[in-house]
Amino acid sequence: GTEDLKEEAKKALKKGDKERAKRALKKAGLSEDQIKKFIKEVL
């Protein structure tokens, strides 16, 4: 589900894998702006 994808994105970001995080967030249905915001909040 969406929460799982967001968790996956957080883990990817902590490993420095932004591309993987972006893919997971796109799958979760987030827009580009939401993805940028999510990444900023996590990092």
Score class of each variant (00 low, 15 high):
K36V: 13
K11A: 13
D4Q: 12
R23L: 11
K36M: 13
E8N: 04
K10T: 08
L43R: 05
E41R: 09
D33S: 11
Q34N: 05
K22V: 15
K14G: 07
K40E: 15
K22N: 07
E7T: 08
K37G: 09
L5D: 04
I35D: 00
A12P: 01
G1H: 12
A21D: 00
L25M: 03
G29Q: 03
K36N: 14
K15Q: 14
E8D: 06
K37N: 13
R20I: 07
D4P: 06
K27H: 06
K10S: 06
V42H: 13
K26D: 05
K6L: 15
A12Q: 05
A9S: 02
K27N: 07
K22D: 05
K15F: 10
F38T: 01
D4H: 11
L25R: 01
K27I: 08
K26M: 12
E32A: 09
L43Y: 09
E19H: 07
L30S: 00
S31Y: 02
D4F: 13
K10W: 09
A28K: 02
E3W: 06
L30G: 00
S31D: 11
A12Y: 14
K6V: 14
D17V: 02
A9I: 06
G16M: 04
K18I: 15
L25S: 00
E41N: 09
G29F: 02
I35H: 00
I39N: 01
K37S: 13
R20L: 12
R20D: 06
K27A: 14
E19I: 08
L13D: 00
D33Y: 09
K36G: 07
R23W: 09
V42Y: 14
G29D: 02
E41Y: 09
E41I: 08
K26G: 05
K11T: 11
K10N: 04
L13Y: 04
D17K: 04
L5G: 04
K40Y: 15
I35L: 03
F38H: 02
E7Q: 09
K40N: 14
K18L: 15
E41T: 09
K37W: 09
E32Y: 08
F38Y: 05
E7H: 07
K10P: 01
G16L: 04
A24D: 04
G1S: 13
G16E: 02
D17H: 07
K36P: 03
D17A: 04
F38L: 04
T2H: 12
E32I: 07
L5C: 06
K22H: 12
G29M: 03
D33L: 08
K14V: 10
E3S: 09
A24L: 15
K40V: 10
L13H: 01
F38D: 00
E41F: 09
L30T: 00
K15I: 14
L13Q: 01
D17P: 01
L13K: 01
T2N: 11
G1C: 11
E7F: 07
A21L: 04
A12F: 14
S31G: 05
K40R: 12
D33K: 10
L25V: 00
